[in-house]
Measured scan of single mutants.
Amino acid sequence: DETGKELVLVLYDYQEKSPREVTIKKGDILTLLNSTNKDWWKIEVNDRQGFVPAAYLKKLD
């Protein structure tokens, strides 16, 4: 059920640097789980959840 889920576009590649982070690729469109922290957003990638720098993402309307 995708209702109410926010999507984000990945602006730059990011390689995870800790187990709490996930790797993302430029151009991916992913589900945003939590954006309350202005610097690190929690997203879902391939059934994995983790954090990436918010500056690497853009919210889609």
Results as ranks from 00 to 15, higher is better:
58 K>I: 11
13 D>P: 06
5 K>P: 12
10 V>H: 00
29 I>Y: 05
9 L>R: 07
30 L>W: 15
45 V>E: 03
26 K>H: 06
31 T>D: 05
2 E>I: 14
4 G>Q: 14
1 D>L: 13
49 Q>K: 10
40 W>E: 04
52 V>F: 01
35 S>P: 06
61 D>K: 14
20 R>Y: 14
1 D>Q: 14
5 K>T: 10
47 D>Y: 09
38 K>R: 12
44 E>V: 11
40 W>P: 00
39 D>I: 15
61 D>V: 11
32 L>S: 02
4 G>Y: 15
57 L>D: 01
7 L>K: 14
24 I>L: 05
10 V>M: 01
22 V>Q: 04
60 L>R: 04
50 G>W: 05
29 I>N: 02
2 E>S: 14
14 Y>L: 02
42 K>V: 11
45 V>M: 10
56 Y>E: 01
4 G>H: 15
55 A>L: 11
15 Q>T: 14
23 T>V: 03
55 A>E: 09
29 I>A: 02
57 L>C: 07
59 K>D: 02
5 K>V: 12
10 V>T: 05
6 E>S: 14
23 T>H: 03
56 Y>H: 10
5 K>G: 08
61 D>F: 13
18 S>F: 06
29 I>V: 11
5 K>W: 10
34 N>H: 06
44 E>K: 12
14 Y>M: 01
26 K>I: 05
45 V>Y: 13
45 V>R: 13
51 F>I: 07
27 G>Q: 02
33 L>P: 00
19 P>S: 11
59 K>N: 05
45 V>C: 11
37 N>G: 09
10 V>S: 04
21 E>K: 04
33 L>S: 03
27 G>N: 06
1 D>W: 12
57 L>V: 08
41 W>Q: 00
3 T>R: 10
51 F>D: 04
45 V>H: 13
13 D>C: 05
48 R>Q: 07
23 T>S: 15
31 T>Q: 13
50 G>A: 06
49 Q>T: 12
60 L>P: 03
28 D>N: 09
1 D>C: 14
56 Y>W: 06
26 K>A: 13
61 D>W: 10
30 L>R: 12
53 P>M: 03
60 L>E: 04
2 E>M: 14
10 V>C: 10
52 V>A: 12
55 A>P: 08
6 E>H: 15
49 Q>H: 09
2 E>W: 12
